[in-house]
Amino acid sequence: MFKSLFEGNALLDLPVVTLLGFFAAFCGIVAWAFLRRRAADFDSVSQLPLADDDVAILPRSTERRASQD
């Protein structure tokens, strides 16, 4: 099936059309990021690395995941 598909068309068609489609989808994401998303959402997520400081550090030999279990 694939062979007949490719033999019936220029080899370039499928990759070029797909890449144009991908580019359009990417442009949609850009539009979404700049037009629709609230700045407050971004601010809260961008703080995640700064909000994760360990509250304590334990000696290696002490309990491991007991508290999680």
């Binding site: 991908f22 580019f23 989808a25 990417f26 994401i29 850009v30 990021a33 700049f34 998303r37 971004f42 601010d43 997520v45 961008s46 703080q47 690395p49 700064l50």
Partner: peptide
């Protein structure tokens, strides 16, 4: 000790790399 400059840009950075 400060958040990334633009989280928006990081999203676009990510999807651009995945798509391209």
């Amino acid at each position: 000790d400060r958040p990334v400059y633009s989280y928006r840009l990081s999203i676009i950075h990510f999807w651009a790399l995945v798509f391209i």
